[in-house]
Structure formats: structure tokens, C-alpha cells
Design a protein around this nucleic acid. Structure first.
Lengths: 215, 215
DNA sequence: AGCTCATGTAAACAGCTTTTACATGAGTCG
DNA sequence: CGACTCATGTAAAAGCTGTTTACATGAGCT
């Protein structure tokens, strides 16, 4: 527990005023979403976790959706960051970095289920929360850039459209994350690691475009 | 509207006793899920739609999740049925039938959003509702069978593992449905029809395995 | 005709959301 | 230093919801 300075990001109290309620509520929301899904967290329970009255959160968020949207927003940012780190500008080698990107996708879904749920599984209307769309776009831009980097490996004539590539890979990664990694009604047991399934799928896909890994 | 016999599947009333409340509740749930998502339907509102008191549904379903599970169960059955119809035993030609299967997948997500949401987007714990897992298995079995049919096109040596194929295609179809077809926080505009995106992805994937469409 | 039991209602309790009026105290300014 | 201001907290209340309990109804059987 870091107790540095006046603000303590956690649930501590220093008196009548919390000191850092906004952050404490976001942490509480993450905890609750992780435990019970995006529909299973309530303002009241987040307030209880933060040690304040049920009305206090309304000083910081208009309603539960606004809090959820803030969580999703931060999730997209972390997501984009982790994907970009994995891609690493296509180094040391484009196809290899692309696989790393896929593994990072699943690692995020596995390691940050609360963020992932807020981003992809919630009732949020993306139009009603300005900034969410832009944050999602920034995350997708990493994928797009990576697809572009891989496509550029090929000579100009045989170069596949990188937007389509990005969409296909995104769909497969998201599908695997939704179906086989995350909790949910349709989660299934796999005869292999989800990461290996995705890697195989990506390699088969890339091979078809003339982009095989060790060819 | 079929008004055959004593039961009228809709919301009509015939007196103190509803006559067909169970079915009416399922229809109400479908309507509400379609309008507001799996988290946006309540027992109370379903009861209101069916014209009964808020306590009446509990004679038929233990709680809201049980009603949701019944909807999901029926959804999996319809889903399996429509996929099987599209696949049609691999006729007239395996790869072509496989593409039809993909289109049927998206058509279901598009045409029956309420069922699809109950099946894939809900808070249901699949273990807590016996029968759900089996119903989901039946739907996946169609995909598996189709992948097997396509793989059998090839000579024994170059035949890819059909389970892996089925998982890859399922993931891509589900990913496209989740990201680009259904409502949700991450839904994005596409520069093409989702069906075309999926078809292109499937063809690229199959081509890599030596199963190109008109090759 | 009368019994039985599935299926309905009414009423009550508890939790969540959101609003309103009020309380606190941190920071600022004379 | 003392007083003002305002963001940030509380308490209380109204109106939702889910769920349980005791009671009412009437359909179908004997």
C-alpha cells in the first residue's frame, strides 16, 4: 500500500473528505467488474468499498455508466500501450512481432479481465461517451500499423490491403478471447492454449498472403 | 398470430390464470433483451409485458438467470438448426457450403440479436444451467462437421486438423459478429459488409490449407 | 359435487439510484 | 490571523427493482 502524500489511491479515509474518491471509485469498479462482470457492479457497492456514502460518487460521475465509461477509457489506453509495446515497431522482424502482438492481445484479455469487460462486454453506448471512440481508435491504430508493417514486407504488387488484414486478425483475436479466454456463457475448454490457437491461425492466414514466418 | 387452442403464446389473458405464462415470459424476455441487452431486462418488466404480477414469473423460473438460460438454450437450438441448414451436408460443394455457413452465422447474429446476446453476451454461468453446455456443443458440432467435410476434400497426407479449423473459423465469425455486427461499446463502422469481410477471411484461411474456392 | 394443486395475487422487506438540503473543512484573500 | 467560498462529503427521502410469504383462484380429476 502506498501512502504517499495526501492522496492514497486506495480506500483509506482521512476525515470528512476522502481526498481521492474519484480514483478510489475507479479502483473499486475494477474490482467489482472483475468479480461479477460489468453488470454486477453498482454505485452503491463501489461507494461502500471506498468507505463513503452512496451519494458521494455522484459528485464525480453522473451515473454508473459514466464510471464504467471512465474504466473503459483507461482500459483502451492501457490496451493500446501494451499492444504497441508488443509490436515494438515491427522489430526484430515483422511477422514475429505480429505474433507477439497477438499474444499481447490475449494476455490483456487474460490479465485485465475487468478492463476488457468494460471495453467490450458492457452496456455502454459508445456515442454517449465522447472520447471512448477515439480511445478505441487509438488501440485499433496499433493493429492497423502492425498489419501495414507486415504487408510492407511484400513487393508492391502482391501487397494485401492492410486494413482488411487488421480487421481479420482483430476479429480472430477477439473471437478467441471471447470464446476461450474470458468467463462467460459460451466459454469452452480448449485442447490447446488459446495463445497457440491464435498463433496458428495468424500463421495460416499470413501464409496465404505469402507472408509465412520461416518460409 | 396463431390463436390455436387454449394457449396463446402472446400476452393475452383469459382470466385469473394466464394459460401460457411460461411462453409469454420467454417472448417478453426476447423482446426486452433485443431492445436493451441481456442486462437490461428485468423479471418485473417481463411480467408487466405479459400482464401478470411481478411475483408470477417465479412460478416458472427460479430467477432472472433461469429465464435467460432458457432463452439461451432455445437460441443454441435455433442456431444449430440454421447452421446445419446452411451447411446442408456440404452440398453442392464443400468450400461453397462452408461459406454459406459463415453467412448463416452472421445472419443469425444480425437477425436474432436477442438470442445471440443471451447466448454469448450474458452473465450466465454455463455450469449452473445444465443443458446449456450440451446445446452449445450441438451448435459447435455443426461447425466441426463442416470443417471436417472441407478437410476431407484433401488427400490424407495434407489434411489439416478439422478441430483447429473449426475453432479458427468460429473465432473469426464470432469476432466479426461481436465487433462489427452487434450493438456494443466497441462496435465499429466497416468499409465493407461484415459478410464480405468474413468470406474473404475464410477464403484466405482455406487457401493457405490448399482448399481455395475455385482453384 | 367436491378435492387438490398448479398458478395466480397482494403485501412486505430489502437493496439500488438519484435528488435535495445540509455539513465540513481546505484553500484563499484581505 | 480570521472569515469567506466552494468542492466534496452526509443524511434523508422517493421511486425504482427483486424476491419471499401468505393467501386466492379455478382447472381438472375422481
Amino acid at each position: 500500500m502506498s501512502w504517499s502524500g495526501p492522496g492514497d489511491g486506495g480506500s483509506g479515509r482521512r476525515g470528512y473528505h476522502h481526498g481521492n474518491l474519484r480514483e478510489a471509485l475507479i479502483e473499486a469498479a475494477l474490482e467489482l467488474i472483475g468479480a461479477k462482470g460489468p453488470a454486477g457492479f453498482t454505485i452503491a457497492e463501489a461507494a461502500r468499498l471506498a468507505g463513503v456514502s452512496p451519494a458521494a460518487p455522484y459528485r464525480h460521475f453522473r451515473d454508473a455508466d459514466a464510471l464504467l465509461a471512465e474504466v473503459a477509457l483507461r482500459g483502451y489506453d492501457r490496451f493500446a500501450e501494451q499492444l504497441a509495446t508488443a509490436w515494438n515497431g515491427g522489430r526484430p522482424e515483422a511477422v514475429r512481432a505480429f505474433e507477439d502482438l497477438g499474444r499481447a492481445y490475449l494476455a490483456f484479455a487474460r490479465g485485465e479481465p475487468a478492463y476488457y469487460a468494460a471495453m467490450f462486454d458492457s452496456r455502454l453506448n459508445i456515442d454517449a461517451h465522447p472520447g471512448l471512440q477515439a480511445a478505441a481508435d487509438r488501440a485499433f491504430a496499433v493493429l492497423r500499423e502492425a498489419a501495414d508493417g507486415v504487408a510492407s514486407t511484400l513487393p508492391n504488387g502482391r501487397r494485401p490491403p492492410s486494413l482488411m488484414m487488421a480487421l481479420h486478425i482483430w476479429a480472430m483475436a477477439h473471437g478467441i478471447a471471447s470464446l476461450f479466454v474470458r468467463e462467460g456463457p459460451s466459454r469452452r475448454k480448449l485442447p490447446m492454449a488459446a495463445e497457440d490457437l491464435l498463433e496458428a491461425g495468424v500463421l495460416i492466414y499470413l501464409q496465404s498472403l505469402g507472408l509465412a514466418g520461416g518460409e
